[in-house]
């Protein structure tokens, strides 16, 4: 039996900078997961991933990551995706230093 679909976001790394980005409703790439489009069904997810794959001039390695709905926008459900929204834990480098996440 196929596993029931859980909400997803499309994420990738930017081609030039290499930092993590998420795909928004308007089809842009944002450095904030909370800006991402939360996809609620498998067919849309498949379609969005295909659209992302067509943007190889902007991003690398697009994939679907689990996320959950929150008031401020999608939130990660797995620690790996949470780390990607912040940066490493040993220095204040990466997103935690460069951008302000909505709280």
């Amino acid at each position: 039996m196929p596993r029931p679909f859980t909400p997803k976001v499309v994420t990738a790394n930017r081609l030039l900078e290499g930092d993590a980005v998420w795909r928004t409703v308007t089809g842009d790439w944002s450095p904030r997961l909370s800006d991402a489009e939360l996809i609620e069904d498998a067919r849309t997810a498949e379609l969005r991933l295909l659209e992302a794959a067509a943007e190889a001039h902007l991003v690398v390695g697009a994939y679907l990551a689990d996320a959950t709905k929150a008031e401020t926008g999608p939130k990660p459900t797995h620690f790996r995706e949470a780390f990607r929204t912040r940066g490493p834990s040993n220095y204040a480098h990466g997103k935690q230093a460069d951008i302000q996440e909505k709280t």
Binding site: A56, H57, R84
Partner: peptide, 28 residues
């Protein structure tokens, strides 16, 4: 050639790896 679109990521990846360049969680 990767940046101007002449090479796909699938074509570029083995070339960058041969030169020690990885793509990690937050950056290259």
């Amino acid at each position: 050639r990767r940046i101007d679109g002449s090479l796909t990521e699938d074509e570029f990846k083995p070339l960058r790896l041969m030169n020690g360049l990885y793509l990690q969680l937050h950056a290259y």
